[in-house]
């Protein structure tokens, strides 16, 4: 099986030597398959952003190795290939849009890769259409809503034709409508374009239909499995200060009251289906 990203025994400290800080990542082992939709959750400070930055060589492991398509992130000659293969989308859309016009911002990545102008045009069109922002190509970013800005930021990554996008809390600063826009865009890219998605989030609802959910706590991976396997562990999740989807919580409470209900109910539909049976 071809892994798009592999982390092998990865440990990381922000500063080394004299003023050595405690490790933020502790012996992490992870493998992501091509085309997977992976959710990463964990409370504040658990090391999610730090891990995300390892996936495109913005940070290099203190111990261990990260491989992107078998390229070692420590190998400087692959740096640009790695960053083109695994694109990173950040939390604040305002601080990742570079140009004063939407289409020029989407062109920024391909321009950096030295792609010929005609090909850049095609890619910009493809990327903006993929996120549903083509009509806004001539807009200045500050005239867009938060959700629209974040979709432009995603288009900026898509235009580099990555095989994998890592999104670090892309919806944290958005209102519910913006959040829905962004999440459905990400899901569409995963399904229709076959792009591997790694979604870091605080919202459990966003990962209930992921292929795989990873739970981080204090720099370690504590749970790793399908959403059903992970959210079943209500007690473990609560202990590390995480919520479970509301419906799962309800099912959990009902079970505690002695009602015979499966513990792996994640969505309202599943709940309705179970109750009406």
């Amino acid at each position: 099986m071809a892994f798009i990203i592999r982390a092998q025994n990865v440990s990381f400290c922000y500063s080394e030597g004299e003023s050595k800080s405690p490790p933020v990542l502790k012996d992490i082992n992870l493998q992501f398959e091509k085309g997977e939709f992976i959710g990463i959750i964990g409370h504040n400070g658990s090391g999610k952003s730090t891990l995300a930055k390892h996936f495109n060589a913005l940070l290099l492991p203190t111990k261990g190795n990260v491989y992107v398509k078998d390229m070692d992130t420590k190998d400087a000659k692959h740096l640009w290939d790695i960053r083109q293969t695994a694109g990173l989308v950040f939390q604040n859309p305002d601080n990742q849009i570079v140009a004063a016009i939407v289409e020029e911002d989407v062109a920024f990545g391909p321009e950096n890769l030295g792609i010929p102008p005609e090909e850049i045009r095609k890619r910009v069109e493809y990327a903006l259409k993929a996120v549903g922002m083509w009509e806004y190509k001539d807009f200045p970013p500050h005239m867009l809503s938060g959700g629209q800005k974040q979709r432009v930021a995603i288009a900026g990554i898509i235009a580099m034709k990555p095989e994998c996008i890592v999104l670090d809390e892309p919806t944290a600063m958005l209102d519910p409508i913006g959040r829905r826009e962004v999440i459905s865009t990400i899901k569409k890219l995963n399904k229709e374009e076959g792009i591997t998605v790694i979604l870091i989030t605080h919202f459990m609802e966003e990962v209930v239909d992921a292929d795989r959910v990873i739970v981080m706590d204090d720099g370690k991976v504590v749970l790793d499995g399908t959403p059903k396997e992970v959210f079943k562990e209500v007690e473990v999740l609560k202990k590390i200060g995480l919520d479970v989807p509301q419906v799962t919580e309800l099912a959990h409470q009902l079970r505690k009251e002695g009602i015979d209900i499966p513990s792996d109910i994640l969505t309202i539909e599943e709940m309705v289906e179970f109750i009406c049976r």
Binding site: W80, G87, P110, L113, G114, I157, M160
Partner: peptide, 15 residues
């Protein structure tokens, strides 16, 4: 910008 492969004007094309 760095994660979008920005490395200055060298080898850069324009749309």
């Amino acid at each position: 910008m760095e994660s979008r492969c920005y490395r200055g004007g060298h080898n850069r094309t324009r749309m």
